[in-house]
């Protein structure tokens, strides 16, 4: 049974694209067949973060509009052969994607892949709607910061009302991925606590990705962080999140500033997922 998973947030720049790449690669590394679809039409970036920018010939819009076959637009990752990418187009035409067109592509992708990961654009407009429309589950990427949490709350409301699953009264799984978490700032009481965010948004926690320069390094060289530096803290967090998506029950530890490593581990929390 294939799963269509939207990675969304409402707010821009919270890390949806690096998270889509990292989760996609992590799932693919376990042997799952994965495709990551860039829904950010007009502002494509997933190709760059995945290091495939020089290989783009066709894109999602070409496939939706029938100018290219799906197989022609898919780009197979050179490092993990169970990982593929479907790039977004750079067109400025906001109506390039249609609901029926997207449905057709998603249906076709479902047949080929175990996981179809939709990297949503920011906002609550058409692009974000289409990215979530046919999803079975969502990863809501949130930074521990007031405006991000607020926007996530709006997106959660939309996931519960605007997706096909929600409209049919079916269950729609939502997972919270807290990114750019800074242990030092948390220790100084300058950042919303994990507990606070969880209490406000009231969806199960999938993982906590610490703020780390490794995420930026990985984007710089065009490689998902789980492949670029697998032992780094963000890579581990993403790999564990991927295992939770596959149904494993793993404790989620709140990242701590280096010095507090041991104490922090004592306060590890049970996954609610």
């Amino acid at each position: 049974m294939s799963k269509v998973m939207v990675v969304t947030s409402g707010k821009g720049g919270v890390g949806k694209t690096p998270s889509s790449a990292a989760l996609g690669a992590a799932l693919a590394q376990t042997g799952q067949n994965v495709v990551i679809v860039d829904f950010d039409v007009g502002l494509r970036n997933l190709d760059l973060v995945m290091g495939a920018e020089r290989r783009v010939v066709y894109d999602l819009v070409n496939v939706v509009q029938g100018d290219a076959k799906l197989a022609q637009a898919l780009i197979r990752d050179k490092r993990v052969d169970t990982l593929s990418l479907l790039p977004a187009s750079q067109t400025r035409d906001k109506d390039a994607l249609t609901e029926e067109g997207v449905k057709k592509v998603i249906d076709e992708l479902r047949e080929k892949f175990d996981w179809v990961i939709c990297d949503s654009p920011a906002g609550i407009e058409k692009g974000a709607m289409l990215a979530m429309r046919y999803a079975d589950l969502a990863v809501v990427v949130t930074n521990p910061e007031v405006s991000s949490v607020r926007d996530s709350d709006r997106i959660i409301g939309m996931l519960d009302s605007k997706t096909v699953r929600a409209e049919n009264g079916e269950k729609f799984e939502k997972h919270l991925l807290l990114t750019r978490y800074s242990p030092a700032r948390a220790a100084r009481g300058e950042m919303l606590k994990v507990e606070d965010v969880l209490e406000i948004l009231a969806i199960p926690l999938l993982g906590i990705v610490p703020e780390s320069e490794e995420v930026l390094n990985a984007s710089n060289v065009g490689c998902p962080v789980t492949l670029h530096n697998p032992v780094s803290a963000p890579a581990r967090a993403y790999m564990e999140a991927a295992r939770r998506l596959l149904g494993e029950k793993l404790d989620i530890a709140t990242p701590t500033a280096e010095r507090q490593g041991f104490i922090g581990r004592l306060f590890g929390r049970k996954a609610i997922a």
Binding site: L48, G51, E53, R54, Q90, L216, N217, A218, S219, N220, V221, G222
Partner: peptide
């Protein structure tokens, strides 16, 4: 260092996209 790699990749990509 990763930044020089990023710079090179961007130059290549943007040269292509601007021409397009």
């Amino acid at each position: 260092r990763s930044a020089p790699v990023a710079r090179e990749r961007l130059q290549l990509l943007l040269a292509h996209e601007r021409a397009l």
